[in-house]
Simulated assay, not measured.
Amino acid sequence: MFEIERRLYDEGHRFVACIDEVGRGCLFGDVVACAIILPQRYTIDGVRDSKKLSPSKREKLNGYILHDSIAVGLGRITPAVIDRVNIKEATRLAMKQALDNLTDKDGKRIIPSYVLIDAERIQTDIPQLGVIDGDNIVHGISAASIVAKVFRDSLCISWDKAYSGYDIAGNKGYGTAKHIQALLEIGPAELHRKSFISKIMEGKK
């Protein structure tokens, strides 16, 4: 799981940033990305792709990651932008935003010398590598996926209070049967991705 990172450290890179996103397939809410720099050759037991962890385990690991990381940055792209540019481009924008927002615990911006990204490439002058299945084979990308997931889940709880009826706190914006039924019964909310729900809403006519 650490081969790529170790090779980069052996080549002399001091700060290697790892980036992942969550919420790409949701019907509701922002797509969120996290960029993170962990100490060299540092590992956290239990870190893996956030989708393979229970909510309580993610929360616990999130605390360790944020405490021990050198720098963390988050990026968010709204449904309106997703609808305008498409989800793939929006994901890249969120990842770039997260990279640009990398700061240490004192609020100082940290610029890495290399970037590892889960299966994507972004617009940056920093050398980068898109790693297929990166959230499973790169420790730092797994850590980024956990931080992004915990952050977005907290947004879902807030969104659920503001946009009741869709069970966003429970389904996290994904297209569950209950969520789709609510769409058909009460219609879309402001934060629904119109480009994602168009076929669902066509079935209402």
Rank of each mutant, 00 (worst) to 15 (best):
D45M: 06
D49E: 08
Y42S: 12
G46T: 03
D30S: 09
I36M: 10
A33Y: 01
I44H: 03
V31R: 09
K57V: 14
G63E: 14
A33W: 00
D30K: 10
R58V: 02
R41A: 05
K60C: 11
R58S: 11
D45S: 10
L61N: 06
K57F: 01
P39F: 05
V47C: 09
R48S: 15
A33Q: 03
K57I: 10
R41T: 02
K51P: 02
K51S: 12
Y42E: 10
K51A: 11
G63Q: 12
S50W: 01
L61W: 00
G63L: 11
C34W: 03
V47L: 14
E59L: 13
P39M: 13
R48L: 01
A35V: 04
L61P: 01
R48Y: 00
R41Q: 09
L61A: 12
K52F: 03
I37D: 08
V47H: 05
I37A: 12
Y42T: 07
S56F: 00
I37W: 02
E59D: 15
S56W: 00
C34V: 04
G63F: 00
P39L: 11
K51C: 04
G63R: 09
S54C: 02
D49K: 07
L53I: 07
R48V: 09
L38M: 15
K52S: 13
P55R: 04
I44D: 09
V31F: 08
S50P: 01
K52G: 03
V31K: 07
Q40R: 13
T43W: 00
S54W: 00
L53H: 07
V32R: 03
V31H: 12
I44L: 10
P39C: 03
L53N: 08
